[in-house]
Simulated scan of single mutants.
Amino acid sequence: MRPTDPDARVLARVADGDAAALTELYERYAGPLFTFLFRMAGDRGTAEEILQDTLLAVWRSAGTFQSRSRVSTWLFGVARRQAHNRLRGTPPPPAAEPYEQADRVPGPEELAVGGDWLQAALARLPRAQREVVVLSYLADLPHQDIAEVLGIPVGTVKSRLHLARTSLKEALHEQSV
């Protein structure tokens, strides 16, 4: 990465123990990371916990960033590893989280990324397809960055997206029928 990259400079400050720099990264990336984690975990509480685990891992490992990718790509990779560690061995997220009006109000992140039907459709996808859909459409990462985050070839990203889009179209069709 170029030394003028603002994210790389902020991450270098995190590596030097600057807590304000970690806050700055949080403010820049908490929304996209939360969206990714929410769609992977299936519920707000678990996604928030994984996001906190991610920030702790970033705090501890910022010095290992070697500028071979963009900071955003590296952050999504850290978040993905934290999610896999947390969700390993757990069943896929529920088709739709029930709403209990008295104590369950969707947060702004949830409202921004879709309703229950989307969560249900994403939950039906295999985890590998769900990851590429969320990283591509909700985190707005280019195919090359998704490939780096997931450690797979760009062609695999494209094929997983194709399969996922087909499944999501079927789910949308079922929803409208």
Rank of each mutant, 00 (worst) to 15 (best):
H143Q: 13
V105N: 08
R39K: 10
T73G: 02
L125Q: 03
R160K: 14
A139L: 01
R104F: 13
R70F: 03
V132E: 09
R2V: 02
V149L: 10
A79Q: 04
A95R: 15
N85C: 09
R9I: 12
D53P: 07
H143D: 15
F34D: 02
Y26G: 07
G42V: 07
G107L: 13
P94V: 09
T90K: 11
A120H: 08
T4S: 14
G89K: 11
E97I: 05
G151M: 07
D18Y: 05
R68G: 14
E49K: 01
Q82H: 06
S67L: 10
Y26D: 09
A123N: 05
D140N: 08
G115M: 03
V177D: 12
V177S: 12
R68Y: 06
G89W: 11
S167N: 05
S72N: 03
D53A: 13
Y137D: 14
L111Y: 12
V14Q: 04
W74I: 03
P153L: 06
Q82V: 06
P92C: 06
A121M: 01
R9Y: 02
W59R: 04
E49G: 01
S159F: 01
L87I: 10
L55M: 13
A12G: 08
A8V: 03
A57R: 11
R160E: 00
D18A: 10
A47E: 05
D103K: 11
K169P: 00
N85T: 15
F38I: 03
R13H: 12
A83C: 04
Y26E: 06
A20W: 03
F36V: 04
A12P: 01
P94H: 05
L161V: 08
D18P: 05
R60H: 14
G114S: 12
G107I: 12
L122D: 09
G155D: 07
Q175V: 11
P106H: 12
Y29M: 04
D116N: 02
R165I: 06
T64C: 08
G42I: 07
F34C: 02
S176Q: 14
N85V: 13
D103R: 13
I146N: 06
G151V: 07
T166L: 04
L51Y: 00
R9P: 01
Y137E: 14
L55P: 00
L51N: 00
D145T: 09
P32H: 08
L118K: 12
R2A: 02
G114L: 12
H162N: 13
A147P: 06
S176L: 15
L111R: 15
G42N: 10
V177M: 11
Q82A: 15
R2K: 04
T64G: 13
L135M: 07
V149H: 07
G115Q: 06
S136N: 14
V105I: 15
P6Y: 10
T46K: 04
R104D: 15
A164I: 05
V177C: 09
L37W: 06
T73E: 00
L138S: 06
